[in-house]
């Protein structure tokens, strides 16, 4: 196929052929990623489950992400409160800081920040680990030892991410709101009791649920991108490094895109 398009134009790349080939390659890639995702999801949702691996991944993905998620959330919450205060000040609406902080964190920022931080920490880590296994023939070895990589490697990561992300987001929500409260009370002279009461009054289960549902999807995206890029990593340290970078960028973009789509969806159905 490559021969036909280059030889016709006498050695110069034909821009039409080039675009066509790029488009085809893109569709082929989307097709492969979809197949991979389907097989992973199927392995994750049907027995037998590898509980030992699942537990290991829950610790690796969930537990060890707590510090980075907590720190990011507190700063985002604080910055949010500060900005809303400054913005609200212009038309005398600064008393709405607690309301907007809790809304913004639960519906949007808790999940997005967690998703983005884990796209860095978790996706790149998974891609590097699986990529290294691929290039050192460990994935081939798994197959010859009658272990299916989808069940042994990918499904536990997928499940662990989908299960722990909502918990992490819940924690990010709480810490994020706390960050807003800290700044409001200690820097912006809000009354602590009033701030907390306003937050509680404005907090709804629906808003929290929106964030948590997003989190499940982000978890899937994060694990899938890491596993997929890792599993097709090419040989050598550069190959593995490339897989890690590609997976991280891919996961971050997909998390943001999915976030937009999900936000639109929830607004449409009136939640």
């Amino acid at each position: 196929m490559s021969d036909a398009s280059t030889t016709k134009s006498g050695g110069f790349p034909n821009p039409l052929a080039w675009t066509g080939r790029g488009t085809l390659a893109l569709f082929a890639e989307i097709g492969r990623l979809s197949m991979f995702s389907g097989r992973t999801a199927l392995s994750a949702l049907t027995p037998p489950w590898n509980l030992a691996q699942l537990w290991k991944q829950i610790i690796a993905i969930g537990f060890y992400s707590l510090p980075v998620v907590g720190l990011s959330a507190v700063f985002i919450g604080a910055a949010l409160a500060l900005n809303i205060y400054t913005g609200g000040n212009r038309f005398g609406a600064e008393q709405f800081v607690p309301n907007i902080v809790v809304l913004g964190i639960t519906r949007e920022l808790g999940a997005t920040i967690t998703g983005l931080m884990l796209a860095g920490r978790v996706t790149a880590g998974i891609a590097a680990e699986i990529g290294a296994m691929k290039v050192t023939e460990q994935i081939d070895a798994l197959k010859t030892l009658s272990a299916n990589p989808f069940r042994y490697l990918y499904a536990p990561r997928f499940l662990a991410a989908a299960l722990t992300l909502p918990l992490l987001v819940l924690i990010a929500d709480i810490i994020g709101v706390m960050g807003g409260w800290l700044v409001s009370v200690y820097a912006l002279d809000f009354d602590s009791t009033t701030y907390i009461r306003n937050t509680m009054d404005f907090l709804t289960m629906e808003d929290v649920a929106v964030g948590l549902i997003k989190a499940v999807i982000f978890g899937m995206v994060i694990a899938l991108m890491g596993c997929y890029q890792g599993s097709k990593s090419s040989a050598g340290a550069t190959g593995v490094g490339r897989a890690a970078t590609l997976s991280m960028v891919g996961a971050a973009v997909l998390v943001l895109a999915a976030n937009y789509i999900l936000s639109t969806f929830f607004v449409q159905i009136g939640i």
């Binding site: 290294a132 296994m133 050192t136 023939e137 460990q138 081939d140 070895a141 798994l142 010859t144």
Partner: peptide
Amino acid sequence: GMLFQSGALFD
């Protein structure tokens, strides 16, 4: 049974 040239042990 397969012995890989590189060993391919699970690290």
